[in-house]
Simulated assay, not measured.
Amino acid sequence: MSFHHVDQGVYEKGGARINKPEAKALVADLVERLQSPGFRESRLTIGVVTFNAEQQALIEDLLDEERRRDPSIEPHFADAELEPVFVKNLESVQGDERDIVYFSITYGPDHTGVVSMNFGPMNRTGGERRLNVAITRARHELRIFSSLRAEQMNLARTQAIGVRDLKHFLDFAERGVPALATATTGSLGSFESPFEEAVAAALTRQGWELHTQVGASAFRVDLAVVHPDAQGVYLSGIECDGATYHRAATARDRDKLREQVLRGLGWEILRVWSTDWWIDAAGTLEKIDTDLRRLLAKSRSRRATKAVATSPAASAAVVGENAAADVRPESVTNDQNRCSAA
């Protein structure tokens, strides 16, 4: 599985319901694969899955143009000995399989950069089953082209199981196995103590958005701070020595083990002691607020560096430098990022 982010992708919602940049990027990659030396001899077959019929039609038109431009790829669409390339949407792909499947997510930011939480069939009952069908059509390789990243999806705005599964799927496609450990279903409950509620209220007045009891099993974060720049991810978790803390069997479990596990799952953890809050609530709040702003600055710097490194212009510069040095790069990609979280 590989994730290919289309940075300039725009979803034309409400009208055309297509994503032209994403379709063009997908078709370019597919045609390059068909034209590559030895691909026909490999006898690998290809299929394309889209989220709606409009994106399907667009990709079919783009492929027709490529077939007219380069007749050498025509056998992949018409050879009776091999399964031909197909392009189908989420509703019509059931039962079809190919060795390599391209998946166009289609949905993404609109012309103003806003991401709607309306993902068509994903929002309806049974949407998760449609997604399951789409992502299990590949025998050998699944290539996801998306203008949308998991961090842009805010599960607080929907209760649809299909949308939740789509977010986790995109996160896994981009980051790999580490995404499994940090997948959450959002808030699992209310405050467990008046102390937690007081801390949350104070931080909310400072402008932070918080969710309560986020995580799984016994390793839930008391308060999770939503990232201001990406509503689908958390900037930090805040541990309070409230009910969950005091239920731990030993001091080691309370003070070390829980935090180690949470950090191992990818959380940045800050701690608020009830005694500090009781003695100096204003000072403790100021310290937590300062720590959160430090984490935010660090995150923004990391995200900016990542955006520059993965931009098409940066990749072109790398290629140009290598060419000038008469060096053939083994691989220059800008979209198969499986590394760290935001």
Rank of each mutant, 00 (worst) to 15 (best):
D229M: 07
R252Y: 12
A307C: 02
A249K: 13
F219H: 15
Q206V: 08
A218I: 15
R258Q: 14
S236W: 03
A314H: 14
D222I: 01
G264V: 08
R220H: 10
T284I: 00
A282Q: 13
D222E: 08
D289K: 12
G237Q: 01
I279P: 05
A218R: 15
T284C: 02
G264P: 06
Q231L: 14
A313N: 10
V225M: 04
W277G: 03
G242S: 00
L223C: 07
G242I: 02
T204A: 10
G237H: 00
D280M: 03
E268L: 10
W277F: 05
E197N: 03
L188S: 15
T244R: 14
Y234E: 07
L265D: 09
L292C: 11
V214Q: 07
R252F: 11
E196R: 06
R205A: 06
A309E: 15
A251K: 11
A200F: 04
D229A: 11
R300T: 01
A297M: 12
Q231Y: 08
R220T: 09
W273M: 07
R293T: 04
S190N: 10
R294Q: 14
E239I: 04
T250Y: 08
W208L: 01
Q231W: 05
R293N: 14
P228F: 01
G189F: 07
P194C: 05
A243V: 05
W277A: 07
G186R: 02
A304H: 12
A314F: 15
T184R: 06
D280I: 01
V261L: 12
S311I: 08
K306W: 11
W267E: 04
A216P: 03
T310V: 09
A202F: 07
H211L: 15
R252I: 01
